[in-house]
């Protein structure tokens, strides 16, 4: 087919462009993902003990997860549209992770020398980084399907942002049942779990986001 004929075909009856926005669907999927992760966590384990509601650990975990979720949702919102700049959103994400690493390091330094390792490992060091990516999987798939309906042009980073968002939501749900109360534990193992989710997104992006 020659290009002039193609253009004539596209233009005739084209009508006005209907603008599309990702925000509402993104919020819906994020909310559903958060509820799903909480429900699965509560199905498998007990709610955190009453005492933790007044401690710092639970709220640190939730604040960390929600800050990452908000910044990665913003990032994905940029990456779903051609030509929009995602760099400012990425800067916020890096700042959130670095702040958490900073708080975590300080908390480890405050622990007496002989107890540092048990403090960091806690009881669930090997559960948390696997549970978060697993929990995040359904949310990640929904987010990738949603993003694909728009026009992502950088599939790897868009996948990464989707994974980061799904992982943060999974971490928030998981935190409600996680008894670990060491900030150093959160900084290390939660971050690792969330980054694994983001890595899954980055791997899946170039395949699943093509349009």
């Amino acid at each position: 087919m020659n290009t002039d004929a193609l253009i004539a075909g596209l233009a005739s009856g084209a009508g006005p462009a209907r603008r599309v926005f990702i925000g509402r669907d993104l919020a819906l999927i994020a909310g559903a993902g958060m509820i799903f992760c909480t429900a699965v966590s509560l199905g498998l384990r007990e709610f955190v003990p009453q005492a933790m509601w007044t401690g710092a650990a639970l709220w640190t975990k939730l604040a960390y997860a929600m800050a990452l979720a908000a910044s990665s949702a913003w990032c994905l919102n940029m990456l779903a549209f051609p030509g929009k700049r995602a760099a400012p959103a990425f800067r916020i994400i890096v700042m959130v992770v670095l702040s958490m690493a900073d708080i975590g390091t300080v908390s480890v330094l405050n622990v007496p020398a002989g107890e540092k390792l048990p403090y960091i490992l806690g009881k669930f060091a090997l559960t948390c980084p696997w549970a978060i990516p697993l929990l995040s999987l359904p949310t990640l798939i929904s987010l990738l399907r949603l993003t694909r309906r728009f026009a992502p042009t950088d599939l790897r980073w868009a996948g990464f942002a989707a994974g980061l968002l799904a992982g943060s939501l999974a971490a928030a749900g998981y935190a409600l049942t996680c008894e670990e109360d060491a900030i150093g534990f959160v900084a290390l193992w939660y971050s690792l779990g969330i980054i694994l989710s983001a890595g899954m997104g980055a791997l899946a992006g170039p395949r699943l986001l093509r349009w």
Binding site: R19, F81, P82, F150
Partner: peptide, 8 residues
């Protein structure tokens, strides 16, 4: 053409 709604 298919994605013209994505232009801000």
């Amino acid at each position: 053409h298919a994605k013209r709604g994505t232009h801000d």
